[in-house]
C-alpha cells in the first residue's frame, strides 16, 4: 500500500513540476531560447513574497495575487531590455546571459538572505488532507496545485489557439520576420510571452514555497526538474509537459520509497532513459535534433 501511496504522491508532485515547466516550454516554443535562470526566478518569487507580505497585509495564501503581476511586468521589462539585446546577437548569447543571471541571482540571494531555508507559512491549510485509507493521504494543497497546473496549461492552450494575441505569438514563433512584414511588432510579442512565462514561474515558486522550504541554492533543482518534465513529455507539447511532470514525480517518489537518497537520482535515470529510448519524448511531435 505504501507503493500505491508513493505513486499518488508522485502524481501530486507532478502538478508542481508541470507548473514550473510550462514557462520554460513556452519561452522555448516562442523564442527558441532556454532560460537557464528559470529555476532561480521561482526562488526569487518566494523571497519577494517573504519581503512583501508583512508590508501589504495580504494573507500568505493570497501572496501570489501580489507577486505574480510584479513578475509579469518584470518579465516584460527584462525581455525588452537585456534578453532582447542578447537575442539580437544569437541564441548562444542568450544561453550564456541567462546562465550568468542565474549565478548572479543565486549569489546575490545568498548575500542578502544567507543560505538558510525559508518557507511561506500558510498555517494549518497545508496539513489538511483526504485519507481514503490509513496509508494513503491526499493533501488538499497538492491537489489544488495539480488543479492549478491543469487550469494554467488549459488556459495557455486556449489563449494560444483562440485569442488574437495567441495567434500573434504563434505567428511570431513560426517566422518572426514574416510576422514583422505584416505589421507585428515581434519584440512586443516576445515581451508578452516572457510576461506569461515569468507569471507562471512565480506562481510555481510560491506554490512550492508554501509546500516545502526554499533556499538561494534551490534554483538549479527547479530548473532541472522543469527541464526533465519538458523533455520526458516531449518538447513542444504543453499537455506532454503535464504528463512529463507526473512521470518525473512518480519516478522520484518510487525512488524515494526504495531509499530516500535515490529520490532525485531516480528522476534523472528516467529522464536519461527517455533520452536514450525515445528522444522526442512521450508526446513530442518534432524531433529534437
Amino acid at each position: 500500500m505504501s507503493w500505491l501511496n508513493a505513486i499518488i504522491q508522485g502524481i501530486l508532485t507532478g502538478g508542481f513540476y508541470a507548473l514550473f515547466a510550462c514557462g520554460l516550454s513556452l519561452l522555448f516554443g516562442v523564442m527558441g531560447i532556454i532560460n537557464l535562470a528559470h529555476g532561480d526566478l521561482a526562488v526569487i518569487a518566494g523571497y519577494v513574497a517573504v519581503l512583501l507580505i508583512p508590508e501589504t497585509h495580504v494573507p500568505v495564501v493570497w501572496s501570489f495575487v501580489v507577486v505574480v503581476p510584479i513578475f509579469a511586468v518584470g518579465g516584460y521589462i527584462l525581455q525588452r531590455t537585456l534578453l532582447q539585446a542578447s537575442l539580437d546577437r544569437d541564441p548562444f548569447t542568450t544561453l550564456l546571459v541567462t546562465f550568468g543571471l542565474s549565478v548572479v541571482a543565486e549569489n546575490a540571494l545568498l548575500e542578502a538572505f544567507s543560505s538558510n531555508g525559508q518557507s511561506l507559512n500558510i498555517g494549518s491549510l497545508i496539513a489538511h488532507s483526504f485519507n481514503p485509507t490509513t496509508s494513503i493521504s491526499l493533501s488538499y494543497f497538492s491537489l489544488t496545485v495539480l488543479g492549478v497546473a491543469v487550469v494554467v496549461l488549459g488556459a495557455l492552450q486556449l489563449f494560444l489557439s483562440r485569442s488574437g494575441t495567441g495567434r500573434l505569438i504563434r505567428a511570431v514563433a513560426d517566422d518572426k520576420e514574416a510576422a514583422q512584414l505584416v505589421g507585428v511588432n515581434y519584440r512586443h510579442i516576445f515581451g508578452i510571452a516572457a510576461a506569461i512565462a515569468f507569471a507562471t514561474v512565480a506562481l510555481a515558486g510560491i506554490a512550492s514555497g508554501m509546500y516545502t522550504e526554499f533556499a538561494p541554492t534551490s534554483g538549479p533543482a527547479n530548473l532541472l526538474f522543469a527541464f526533465e518534465s519538458v523533455v520526458i513529455g516531449g518538447i513542444g507539447s504543453l499537455w506532454g509537459t503535464l504528463v512529463g511532470g507526473i512521470v518525473l514525480g512518480v519516478a522520484q517518489q518510487i525512488g524515494a520509497q526504495i531509499n530516500p537518497a535515490y529520490q532525485v537520482l531516480a528522476g534523472h535515470i528516467v529522464f536519461l532513459a527517455v533520452l536514450a529510448v525515445r528522444p522526442r519524448g512521450l508526446f513530442g511531435l518534432r524531433t529534437s535534433s
Binding site: F28, G32, I33, I34, L36, P91, F92, L95, F99, P220, L223, L224, F227, E228, V231, I235, V264, L265, H268, I269, F271, L272, L275, P279, S288, S289
Partner: peptide, 18 residues
Amino acid sequence: FRLRGGYFAIATWVVADA
C-alpha cells in the same frame, strides 16, 4: 548529443548531477 543548444546545456547538467 541527442539534444541541441539549450537543451544540450541542461542535459549535461543533469548528467553531472546524476
